[in-house]
């Protein structure tokens, strides 16, 4: 039976842990809202850019570009987006599991990984995957410039024939309680399907300075924008996952405190009962003598 003092110490320590998880939950909530705004803010540009690629692809099928070229996949590159810090539930593990399953299913050894986030880098290194580059400290500092730099290497490698596919691995932000691990191939550039009722009338575009030049300008930006959106999604997912995890932890701490308090009260009552019995026993012994 633990002493009263032991239990009291435990309650205090659980309480202070709870304070931390509560604070982390609130911070994650604020950061999630900010990251979610970034996801929403990036949408109009992304939609317009996608429409442009679609128009160009529909108008000039003959204007092929190296980034559109499909080839048999011998070597592939993967950009894996995880968090720098833990305490965010299954956020990192569910994504890394999906990444490993994919790599195993497509012959190991021909995958090169670019890790964004410390957790993914450490895990994949330890598992013996080829991590060729890594970035950390991106939380809250994702910019279009960073996305462009991040993808410049793989684009050059693709054009030079050193890699045949580029895949983005990240958690899609579905809602505050749901993040979905996503593997999205972005090189060769998948041409977006034409939307209903949009066909026709596109051939009449006036292109300046010409379809091929436009495409050459557009495609790298399109790829970089996909990366940027994935980074935003990943960050929003991270904070929402952490918020959910910290909410659960705070509730668990409540439960623990309740059951510890019960044990403490029981122990205290037991001591009082014992003392009364001793006093009564002692008084009777005196009276009978």
């Amino acid at each position: 039976m633990p002493s009263l003092k032991d239990i009291r110490t435990r309650i205090t320590s659980v309480k202070s842990t709870q304070q931390i998880t509560k604070a982390m939950k609130m911070i994650a909530g604020v950061k999630m809202r900010r990251a979610h705004d970034a996801v929403l803010g990036a949408r109009p540009y992304a939609a317009k850019l996608e429409a442009l690629v679609r128009h160009l692809a529909a108008a000039g099928a003959e204007a092929a570009h190296p980034l559109l070229e499909q080839r048999p996949v011998k070597r592939a590159t993967m950009i894996v987006m995880t968090s720098d810090r833990g305490l965010c539930g299954g956020f990192n593990s569910q994504l890394l599991r999906a990444v490993e399953t994919h790599i195993k299913g497509h012959a190991e050894g021909r995958y090169e990984v670019i890790a964004v986030g410390r957790k993914g880098r450490d895990f994949l290194r330890k598992r013996g995957h080829k991590v060729v580059a890594d970035h950390e400290g991106m939380g809250g500092h994702v910019t279009p410039e960073f996305a462009r730099e991040l993808v410049a290497g793989p684009i050059a490698a693709y054009e030079g024939g050193e890699t045949d596919q580029l895949i983005l691995a990240f958690n899609t932000f579905k809602s505050a309680i749901s993040q979905v691990p996503t593997l999205e191939p972005i090189l060769p550039v998948p041409v977006p399907e034409a939307e209903e009722g949009e066909a026709g009338g596109e051939a009449s575009y006036l292109f300046e300075p010409g379809e091929a030049a436009l495409l050459a300008d557009l495609l790298p930006r399109y790829v970089a924008n996909r990366v940027l959106r994935a980074l935003f999604e990943s960050e929003a997912s991270e904070h929402s996952a952490r918020m959910a995890a910290m909410d659960a932890a705070t509730n668990n701490a409540d439960e623990l405190i309740r059951s510890l308090t019960l044990t403490m009260n029981r122990a205290r009552q037991a001591i009082i009962t014992k003392e009364i019995l001793e006093i009564v026993g002692g008084a009777e012994a005196l009276a009978s003598s």
């Binding site: 596109e202 009449s204 575009y205 006036l206 300075p209």
Partner: peptide, 14 residues
């Protein structure tokens, strides 16, 4: 440099 006024034809440029 280009200028666009209302009624311009469909146009795409860098």
């Amino acid at each position: 440099e280009f200028g666009i006024l209302p009624g311009h034809t469909a146009f795409l440029s860098t």
